[in-house]
Simulated assay, not measured.
Amino acid sequence: MATPPSTPAPAPAPELRPPSSRLEAVVQKVSSSPVFARIAPRVLPPMDKMVHRVTGGKVMISQYMLPSLFLTTTGRRTGQPRVAPMACLPESGGTFLVIGSNFGRPAHPAWTGNLIADGTALVEHRGRTVEATAELLEGEARAEAWAALLRMWPPYATYQARIERQIRIFRLTPVEK
């Protein structure tokens, strides 16, 4: 009789950073709720875009809670530029981790499909815009990035727990010119 293949042991849970203030604790709790997942995608990105435009690219509302950037991808169906504000984790060497959490909603955000289809994007971070290549992380690289992202923003774990899809994580690497 054949022995069934063993399943790998789950990776240990990363050590989560406790909230640095009461306000951050409240924001994390609220942002983990299903109600927030329904409302935030309709409110936060348009508000970030408007404030960014009004301030001449100097301010993003979300940057006051998390490191943030604007990602411009090419629409895979339309070929048109698509701009999405999002949280990011800057890494040493100038790369960024971005996560397609979609606020814990069931579908992948459109920008992740655009990156898979094209693999290039424009990244605007702190007033500087660079062209970047995107790598969809898998395996050990994904596990390491996931742990780092959870240390930055623990609600990502709540988002993943309430959906069936695996949240996509990308590393954006600036193109040297």
Rank of each mutant, 00 (worst) to 15 (best):
M1L: 09
M1R: 10
T3H: 09
P4S: 01
P5A: 13
T7E: 14
T7N: 11
T7Y: 05
P8R: 14
A9L: 14
A11Q: 12
P12W: 08
A13R: 13
L16D: 05
L16W: 09
R17D: 13
P18A: 15
P18W: 09
P18N: 11
L23D: 03
L23R: 13
V26T: 14
V26R: 12
V27L: 15
V27C: 08
Q28K: 04
Q28N: 05
K29R: 14
V30K: 01
V30F: 03
S32F: 08
S33F: 06
P34V: 09
V35Q: 03
A37C: 10
R38Y: 03
I39K: 03
P41V: 04
K49C: 03
K49Q: 12
K49D: 06
V51K: 06
V51H: 05
R53E: 05
T55A: 09
G56H: 06
V59A: 07
Y64R: 11
Y64P: 00
Y64F: 15
M65T: 07
L66Q: 03
L66V: 11
P67F: 02
S68Q: 03
S68G: 02
S68P: 02
L69C: 08
F70V: 09
F70D: 03
L71N: 02
T74R: 13
G75R: 02
G75N: 05
G75E: 05
R76H: 11
T78C: 14
T78S: 15
Q80N: 14
R82A: 03
R82W: 01
V83R: 04
V83H: 00
A84I: 05
A84C: 09
P85F: 04
P90G: 02
P90K: 02
S92K: 13
S92G: 10
T95D: 12
F96L: 08
I99C: 10
G100V: 09
S101E: 00
N102I: 07
N102W: 08
N102R: 14
G104Q: 11
H108E: 13
H108D: 15
H108G: 04
P109G: 06
W111A: 00
N114W: 04
L115P: 02
L115H: 01
I116R: 13
I116F: 03
A117Y: 06
D118F: 04
A121K: 02
L122C: 04
E124W: 00
H125V: 10
H125Q: 08
H125T: 05
T129D: 04
A132V: 15
A132N: 11
T133E: 14
T133A: 12
E135F: 05
L136A: 03
E140K: 12
E140N: 10
A141M: 09
A143P: 04
E144M: 08
L149I: 04
L150W: 08
L150Y: 06
R151K: 14
R162M: 12
R162G: 11
E164H: 14
R165T: 08
Q166V: 14
I167S: 00
I167P: 00
I167R: 00
R168D: 13
I169M: 03
I169P: 01
I169R: 03
F170T: 01
F170P: 01
T173W: 06
P174M: 05
P174T: 06
V175Q: 07
V175A: 05
E176C: 02
K177E: 13
